[in-house]
Design a protein around this nucleic acid. Structure first.
Length: 430
RNA sequence: GGUAGGUUACCCAAGUGGCCAACGGGGGCAGACUGUAAAUCUGCUGGCUUACGCCUUCAAUGGUUCGAAUCCAUUACCUACCA
């Protein structure tokens, strides 16, 4: 199966330039690139689709280049944004690039002899070019009339409230310049990106033709949407990040497990490397018995494995199985200690549990499950709070050492799926 | 620059002197039903309090009043029409 067929089957082609030509081109290995702007110190699940697409190309023998946007990131892409962006400081940008590079490196293969991936920073060729040279060599090839017509710019021009700065307006030129440099120096012939990148990509294609007389291609990946109309990858608490320091592995796993039924098969295609046969088999099982959630589990396991590796995945799977398996009462001490590190955990000084103990409402706030004591009280009265998986209806209840499991832990739950393990530690211990 | 109108909680939006911590909708949280779904139904949704209640909020500041989101003045921002 060619890469194009593969992507199409997965529903990963939103748009594509000259498909017939590209199909011919792609029958032999080609070099392609995708850019990632370091807007934060971690990528999030929304970046995953293009990143995994690069890898899909690599697996089928093509040469992927991941471009870290040191230059473009310092400008800010107006695509898909309704507001002018705050520019990042140089220090933040440097830090972001460093961490994003590490994440990019993890998902591509740089070691293989056959078609190793490359990672470059577009600052390396943008930094030393002078403004005048850029205007003369690159700017001359762009018509403002055309630029203004591009969706990303037009949307902002029509909104008199926010407008668009000259800086962001110029973003397109920088990205087009990237494509041209890569086409010229690395023989890169294809750029991929999210569907909001279409305008930037075609700008690059035009530039390559004018400047190099070369025909290059563009392919965009669809914007992922949830079946309920909400934005993919965002929860109330914020984005789901790839960095476990920002989004714990447990939360990451839970995010995928909680995928809407209607989305799960699509997401298996988007986010995993499972084969067509495997996914079709999962789809069959899912349709026959959605309650078993086999597809959800496969999705969560695969993506978690991809991002966080084997050990972490095994850990959170165990934790999730135990907590949601139905029989938390019968949990063994060994298992409990195992999962204590996986689910959100808070410590408390053991002495606070002595005697009368600590009011439950305070403990809930301390554990971060409730925003305020008043809210905690309401949650308890509404029947939403469980201690060691036993519903607690009394808002005046205190928690004491008697509630400790294995003399060490208290399992708090708010609602159906918000668990926190509170671990008692001896006074003075760190 | 002129004139008219606006600024209310996470968002939209009612309220034009006391019955206002403030109608309604959305979102969120929780409960029931389930499968850690979806849909539906129910409760909650400023803080403190076991509770009576207390405290802080209706753009900002100052004022009138026994009493202000509501009236007056000033400031800031926004919208529309005119220049």
């Amino acid at each position: 199966m060619s890469i194009l067929e593969e992507l199409k089957w997965r529903g990963l082609v939103a748009d594509c330039t000259d498909e017939t030509e590209l199909t011919k081109k792609i029958s032999a290995p080609i070099t392609l690139y995708c850019g990632f702007d370091p807007t934060a110190d971690s990528l999030h699940v929304g970046n995953l689709v293009p990143l995994l697409a690069l890898r899909r190309f690599q697996l089928l023998g093509h040469f992927p280049i991941a471009v870290a946007g040191g230059a473009t990131g310092s400008i800010g892409d107006p695509s898909g944004k309704t507001q002018e962006r705050q520019l990042l400081t140089k220090e933040i940008l440097d830090r972001n690039i460093a961490s994003v590079k590490v994440q990019l490196a993890k998902l591509l293969d740089f070691e293989t002899k056959k078609n190793p991936a490359r990672l470059v920073d577009n600052a390396s060729w943008t930094q030393n070019i002078s403004y005048l040279d850029f205007l003369r060599d690159i700017g001359k090839h762009f018509s403002v009339n055309q630029m203004v017509a591009k969706e990303s710019v037009r949307a902002r021009m029509e909104d008199r409230e926010v407008g668009i700065s000259y800086t962001e307006f110029s973003y397109m030129l920088l990205q087009a310049f990237d494509f041209m440099v890569l086409a010229r120096d690395q023989n890169c012939e294809l750029q991929i990106g999210g569907s909001d990148q279409w305008g930037n990509i075609t700008a690059g294609i035009d530039l390559c033709r004018k400047k190099l007389g070369k025909t290059v291609f563009g392919l965009t990946l669809p914007l992922i949407t949830n079946a309920d109309g909400t934005k993919f990858g965002k929860t109330e608490a914020g984005a789901i990040w790839l960095d476990p320091k920002r989004t714990s592995v447990y939360k990451f796993y839970q995010f995928w497990i909680n995928t809407d039924d209607r989305d799960v098969i699509r997401y298996l295609k988007f986010f995993t490397f499972l084969s067509r046969e495997e996914i079709e088999s999962l789809e069959k099982q899912h349709t026959e018995n959605p309650g078993a959630r086999i597809a959800h589990k496969a999705l969560a396991k695969e993506v978690c494995h991809l991002i966080h590796g084997d050990n972490a995945t095994v850990g959170v799977m165990l934790a999730s199985d135990v907590l949601f398996g139905g029989s938390v009462e019968k949990i063994s001490e060994e298992d409990f200690n195992e999962i204590a590190g996986e689910v959100p955990t808070k410590e408390i000084e053991k002495s606070k549990l002595d005697g009368a103990g600590i009011p439950l409402v305070e403990l809930l706030v301390h554990a971060g499950l409730c925003q305020s004591k008043g809210q905690a009280r309401k949650d308890i009265e509404g029947g939403g709070v469980n201690i060691n998986n036993v519903r607690e209806a009394s808002a005046t209840r205190s928690v004491t050492s008697n509630d400790l499991l294995f003399g060490k832990h208290i399992l708090l739950r708010k609602g159906k799926k918000n668990y926190v393990v509170v671990t008692a530690r001896r006074n003075g211990a760190a």
